[in-house]
């Protein structure tokens, strides 16, 4: 289902599921922000999260009159170390000059609606500890620390 979201003063931005035609724009937007070209990665992400099991996997884009100004990706995950099914967000991006204008919040709200419709009542994510921008964004949406801790170990 395509869900139109409110128009701001300048133009209507539609939050909708990604299509294969959007992926080059997603790649370009990500490259603008990260300075890394990850062509194969984004095509793989679309294959996994935009093209199958769309009842529990969501790859949404912010379509600003044909230009992709943001995207968010997530899925319903279950039973990882005792976690009951919950929504997981693992990518969100907004064109830098459009940030702090509510587009990220709209992407977040839309994917949360999708998670609710999929039957879960909780959304989770994992962010780098030193990534203050993204951590502040999720906190501003109302997210707080959860009951899980990320652990890691070097293998070399």
């Amino acid at each position: 289902m395509v869900r139109a979201v409110r128009a701001d003063s300048e133009t209507a931005i539609e939050i909708r599921p990604a299509t294969p035609e959007d992926i080059p724009a997603v790649i370009a937007l990500d490259q603008d922000v990260t300075s890394l070209l990850k062509t194969a990665y984004w095509h793989d992400m679309f294959d996994r999260f935009g093209a199958q099991r769309q009842d529990v996997r969501f790859f949404l884009v912010a379509d600003n009159g044909g230009r992709i100004d943001g995207f968010i990706i997530g899925e319903v995950r279950a039973w990882e170390f005792g976690s009951s099914p919950s929504g997981w967000i693992f990518a969100v991006q907004v064109r830098p000059r459009l940030r702090v204008r509510g587009l990220g919040s709209r992407l977040f709200a839309t994917i949360c609606d999708r998670f609710r419709a999929a039957g879960v009542d909780r959304v989770r994510t994992m962010v780098a500890r030193d990534n203050t921008v993204i951590q502040s964004f999720f906190r501003s949406q109302g997210m707080i620390a959860g009951p899980f801790i990320e652990l890691e170990m070097r293998l070399d």
Partner: peptide, 8 residues
């Protein structure tokens, strides 16, 4: 966590 076992 709802289940505190290493289930996966």
């Amino acid at each position: 966590p709802q289940r505190r076992t290493a289930s996966r």
